[in-house]
Simulated assay, not measured.
Amino acid sequence: MSTEAGSWTWGSLAPCKESADETRAVAKTTIHRLLSRRDIPLQEKTLWRMLYETAARAAEVLALNVEDLDLEHRRAPVCSKGGTALRHVKPGAEAIAKVAEVMAPRRRTH
């Protein structure tokens, strides 16, 4: 890389080696054990459940607004990586139940 005037010399850059992805899925029993713990806040359990049931990226789930969730049809709109497209993820019944449980106190106070 040349530092003169901020220019790059591509010939001096070595290609990056990609390491093999050794990520493993978490066993369903482990997920259920985590979600049944009483010391974990409900909001955190809801996030984990949404991530597990939809296979959405964490950023996609965290960007959701509760008002955007379609609880009746069990779907949630998320922006794809890069924000170029809108798609729907389909949380399972347990994730929807957790969202409703999180929302219950808010509905009573409004």
Rank of each mutant, 00 (worst) to 15 (best):
D70K: 14
E72T: 15
Q43W: 12
D68R: 13
K17D: 07
E60V: 08
C16I: 01
H73Q: 15
K28H: 09
G83E: 08
L71A: 15
A5Q: 06
A5S: 07
W8Q: 00
T46C: 15
R38I: 05
K45W: 01
A14S: 06
H32C: 03
A56Q: 08
M50G: 04
W10V: 01
S36P: 02
K45S: 02
H32P: 00
K45F: 00
T29S: 10
V26Q: 05
K81M: 10
A58P: 14
L35F: 00
C16L: 03
C79N: 13
S36L: 01
C16A: 09
V66R: 12
W8P: 00
G11L: 01
R49C: 11
E67G: 13
D68H: 13
K45P: 03
E72G: 09
R24P: 00
A76Q: 11
R75W: 06
T29G: 02
R74K: 15
R33H: 11
K81L: 10
E44L: 14
P41S: 14
A55M: 11
T29Y: 02
M50Q: 05
L34Y: 03
S19F: 04
S80E: 14
G82D: 10
L34N: 01
D39R: 12
S7M: 05
K81F: 10
L34P: 01
L64P: 04
H32T: 01
A5D: 07
Q43G: 04
L42A: 12
P41I: 10
E44C: 09
T46H: 05
R33T: 15
R24E: 12
L35S: 00
E60Q: 14
C79W: 14
E72Y: 07
G6T: 02
T9Y: 00
S80Y: 07
T9Q: 02
T30C: 07
E72F: 09
A58M: 08
R37W: 03
E44Y: 09
L51M: 13
N65W: 08
S12L: 12
R49D: 03
G11R: 00
E22I: 07
K28Q: 06
K28E: 07
E67K: 15
K17S: 10
T30Y: 02
V66F: 10
G6Y: 02
I40W: 03
N65F: 06
A14V: 04
M50E: 03
P77I: 11
R75G: 12
A58R: 14
A58F: 04
A20Q: 11
R49N: 05
A25W: 07
G82P: 06
L34W: 04
W10G: 00
S36V: 00
M50I: 08
G6C: 01
N65I: 03
A56Y: 04
S36A: 12
D21G: 04
M50T: 07
P41R: 15
G11K: 00
L62K: 13
